[in-house]
Nucleic acid binder design. Structure first.
Lengths: 139, 139
DNA sequence: AACGGACTCATACTAAAGTACCAAAGTTCA
DNA sequence: TGAACTTTGGTACTTTAGTATGAGTCCGTT
């Protein structure tokens, strides 16, 4: 909301400035009315495009961003997080163990901890919850 | 690219039309130059916003869109698809059976079929593959 | 030094998932 | 009509996942 006011404030200011410039040019006989109006219109058209593009870029970046704060809140350790990401990739316990150079028993331990922290009963549920919390990459 | 030409064509046409209208109003003494320019500027600013919003909405709809064609290709039946979505929600076989009013045995049958069609060995992998193929809702 | 937490690992067990095989009913299409 | 497919479901079995318990090492903090 604040941003909207700022944008329109800047817009009105720009209109006033361009008014003065266009009036000056018309009185000097350098510009016709049509040209002044046309230039103004096109300038503001592109201002509209530019502002909207900026807002939309910000939006799509936000949705991709991982919620590091949430990970902290849940007290998920880095190793547990690694295991979570591997689970979300569809790997089995054995595969994850091989990937991370530990035993399957260790993976089971991490998984159990993850379930506690995410309040999940099975890995598919843990993936869903993690996705909803934006704590794992969309990849 | 074609769209861009069309948009700018329409833009130039709109400028010419509004020129004529504004000239007519100025000669009649109804409008001052400043007001005409201001109105033009604001109109085109919002045209810019509007056009860009339209283009971006189309984009974000595309990325959310489920690849129905892919589902057809993989020959996933509607029932199988229902089960796939439930799996992705984190539900167990028992829970899915209760949700769809069938037996757990039936769910297992559908799941096995899904694994064949998605070339997956376990449900977490099936979810990943389905996600990558854009055949299940982001939800 | 003592404590707590992360990481690692094992064992034993249960539960859930996954596989194989079989079957029946209904629908669609050549 | 027969074949193919979908949907449903059961049984028996194997494999993987998940739980519980216990333990050791390392590191940081009090």
């Amino acid at each position: 909301m604040e941003k909207t006011i700022l944008i329109f404030g800047a817009l009105i200011l720009a209109i006033l400035v361009l008014f003065k410039l266009s009036n000056y040019a018309i009185y000097k006989g350098d510009l016709s009315i049509e040209l002044a109006i046309g230039v103004m219109a096109i300038v503001f058209f592109f201002i509209g495009l530019f502002i909207n593009k900026r807002l939309n870029n910000r939006k799509s970046q936000e949705s991709i961003e991982i919620d590091e704060q949430k990970i902290e809140e849940l007290q998920i350790s880095s190793r547990e997080y690694e295991v979570l990401c591997e689970i979300a990739k569809g790997a089995s316990n054995k595969e994850i163990a091989d990937t991370l150079f530990v035993s399957e028993s260790t993976i089971k331990t991490h998984v159990s901890k993850l379930f506690l922290k995410l309040d999940a009963k099975r890995r598919t549920q843990a993936i869903k919850i993690a996705k909803d919390l934006n704590i794992i990459p969309e990849l």
